[in-house]
């Protein structure tokens, strides 16, 4: 009898005393903990829903009020413009920061230092007061009296423009650091491989480096977009009529402050939820080639969850064995 056959007969198919069924540890505290939390949640919900001081009819009435909807539109517009412009600016600042030119990289460092080191609220108010600092803005040759064009500052820089400027310039400082981190995450060998194939620096940046940097850039930029959407509410201090300002304007007339804050919050929640969808799909797109199988989309995950309910525990995800020749 060989050693292998012996092992087989010892641990083989016939049932012996060794053949026991393994039962997982029971965890009663999990059930108790869950019950406790559910009870507290139910109590809180009950106290809110039966609170006579909350006028639920008003919430329903103002949720789709014309002014609120205009505020939502303006919030989205400000978020969109400042994110797009700040991202372009961020790429420029990051490129300056990574440049071997010491003047460019120092200026970029200084920009980030200044805009990241002061509160956004202070910056917004400062831009609002720009008209006090420079009464007229003009376009001409610096350090000479030659002026091609000039305009009254308060006429050009409305509250809306001041708010946009504040949010954009502040965001560009943060985003440039994200872009820089993304560029630094790409291996130097990628640039060399691209160059050795005859690609120009610009082509290399566009087709080889940027797509790889995007994988690192997109998740934090999604975060920044959501932050930006909420930070637009700070523009209420310079009376930009975004949703929070509209809500406070309405509540100052009807004194239903809590109801209108709930209305604004519901809209913020809806908008931030919607914003996380494109982020997920962008991450999937730029994640190509990094994990061996792409993560499932929410739809696929839902289908799988339903399937597992019917057929028991979901099987382990398929792993693709690397075939070696």
């Amino acid at each position: 009898m060989t050693a292998l056959e012996q092992t087989r007969s010892e641990f083989g198919t016939e049932a012996t005393d060794d053949d026991v069924v393994a039962i997982p540890l029971r965890r009663p505290w999990r059930w108790i903990g869950a019950a406790l939390v559910l009870l507290l949640a139910a109590a809180f919900l009950y106290s809110v829903l039966t609170n006579p001081n909350i006028d639920f009819a008003a919430i329903g009435q103002f949720l789709f009020d014309q002014r609120i909807l205009e505020g939502v539109g303006l919030t989205l517009l400000i978020t969109l413009i400042s994110m797009v412009v700040s991202t372009v600016l961020a790429v420029v600042v990051a490129a300056m920061r990574l440049s071997s030119n010491p003047v460019l990289s120092t200026v970029a460092w200084f920009y980030v230092w200044a805009f990241r080191g002061t509160p956004l609220l202070v910056q917004i108010v400062l831009w609002g007061y720009l008209g006090r600092l420079y009464e007229k803005l003009s376009l001409g040759i610096p350090f000479t009296d030659v002026v091609f064009w000039h305009i009254d500052t308060n006429q050009l820089i409305s509250a809306f423009v001041a708010g946009l400027l504040a949010l954009t310039l502040n965001q560009a400082a943060y985003s440039s650091e994200i872009v820089r981190a993304g560029m630094l995450s790409v291996d130097e060998g990628q640039r060399e491989a691209a160059y050795s194939l005859g690609m120009s620096p610009l082509y290399t940046f566009r087709r080889v480096l940027l797509p790889q940097a995007m994988r690192v850039i997109i998740p934090p930029m999604g975060n920044e977009t959501i932050s930006m959407l909420k930070n637009t509410s700070l523009l209420s201090v310079i009376a930009v009529l975004e949703i929070y300002t509209q809500a406070t304007v309405i509540s100052s007339q009807n004194l239903k402050q809590v109801e209108l804050l709930i209305v604004a919050s519901l809209w913020y929640l809806l908008m931030t939820s919607v914003l996380s969808i494109p982020q997920y799909y962008l991450e999937r797109r730029y994640g190509r080639g990094t994990s061996r199988a792409l993560p499932p989309t929410p739809l696929q995950r839902m289908r799988r969850a339903f399937a597992s309910r019917r057929h028991g525990v979901a099987p382990a995800p398929e792993t693709k064995a690397v075939s070696v020749i």
């Binding site: 060399e192 491989a193 691209a194 050795s196 790889q212």
Partner: peptide, 11 residues
């Protein structure tokens, strides 16, 4: 040119 670390474009 062929490199020690391959340097294929991972994406």
């Amino acid at each position: 040119m062929v490199f020690q670390r391959f340097n294929l474009f991972p994406h």
